[in-house]
Amino acid sequence: MNAKTLRASCAIVIAALTLDVMAQGKPIAYPSKGQSAQKQQADDGACYSWAKSNTGIDPATASTAPPPQSGPAVGGGERVGGAARGAAGGAVIGAIAGDAGKGAAIGATAGTMAGGARARQNRREQQANAQAQSQGAMSTYYRAWSACMQGRGYSIQ
Results as ranks from 00 to 15, higher is better:
residue 1 M to R: 14
residue 1 M to C: 14
residue 3 A to V: 00
residue 3 A to L: 09
residue 4 K to D: 01
residue 6 L to V: 02
residue 11 A to M: 05
residue 12 I to Y: 07
residue 15 A to C: 00
residue 15 A to T: 00
residue 20 D to T: 11
residue 23 A to Y: 02
residue 23 A to R: 06
residue 25 G to E: 10
residue 26 K to A: 01
residue 28 I to G: 12
residue 29 A to H: 02
residue 29 A to N: 00
residue 30 Y to V: 05
residue 33 K to I: 15
residue 34 G to C: 09
residue 37 A to I: 08
residue 38 Q to G: 12
residue 39 K to M: 13
residue 40 Q to Y: 11
residue 42 A to L: 04
residue 42 A to S: 01
residue 43 D to I: 01
residue 45 G to P: 07
residue 47 C to W: 09
residue 47 C to G: 05
residue 47 C to Y: 05
residue 47 C to N: 06
residue 49 S to E: 14
residue 52 K to R: 15
residue 55 T to F: 12
residue 56 G to D: 07
residue 58 D to T: 03
residue 59 P to I: 07
residue 61 T to V: 15
residue 61 T to A: 00
residue 62 A to T: 02
residue 64 T to M: 03
residue 64 T to Y: 13
residue 65 A to M: 07
residue 65 A to R: 09
residue 65 A to E: 10
residue 66 P to A: 10
residue 68 P to E: 04
residue 68 P to Y: 01
residue 69 Q to I: 05
residue 73 A to M: 13
residue 73 A to V: 08
residue 73 A to N: 12
residue 73 A to Y: 10
residue 74 V to H: 03
residue 76 G to Y: 07
residue 78 E to H: 08
residue 80 V to S: 15
residue 83 A to N: 11
residue 84 A to L: 02
residue 85 R to P: 15
residue 86 G to D: 12
residue 86 G to I: 10
residue 87 A to R: 03
residue 87 A to M: 02
residue 89 G to Y: 13
residue 92 V to Y: 15
residue 92 V to T: 10
residue 93 I to D: 14
residue 94 G to M: 09
residue 95 A to E: 14
residue 96 I to S: 11
residue 98 G to R: 11
residue 100 A to G: 02
residue 102 K to P: 01
residue 102 K to W: 03
residue 104 A to P: 00
residue 105 A to V: 03
residue 105 A to Y: 08
residue 108 A to D: 11
residue 110 A to D: 09
residue 110 A to K: 05
residue 112 T to V: 15
residue 115 G to V: 11
residue 117 A to P: 05
residue 117 A to L: 11
residue 118 R to M: 13
residue 119 A to M: 01
residue 120 R to D: 08
residue 121 Q to G: 03
residue 121 Q to A: 11
residue 121 Q to F: 13
residue 122 N to E: 08
residue 125 E to N: 12
residue 126 Q to T: 09
residue 127 Q to E: 13
residue 127 Q to V: 09
residue 131 Q to Y: 08
residue 134 S to M: 14
residue 137 A to E: 15
residue 138 M to C: 01
residue 139 S to E: 08
residue 140 T to W: 06
residue 141 Y to F: 11
residue 144 A to R: 12
residue 146 S to Q: 01
residue 148 C to R: 08
residue 148 C to Q: 10
residue 150 Q to S: 03
residue 151 G to I: 02
residue 151 G to E: 04
residue 155 S to K: 06
residue 157 Q to T: 14
residue 157 Q to C: 13
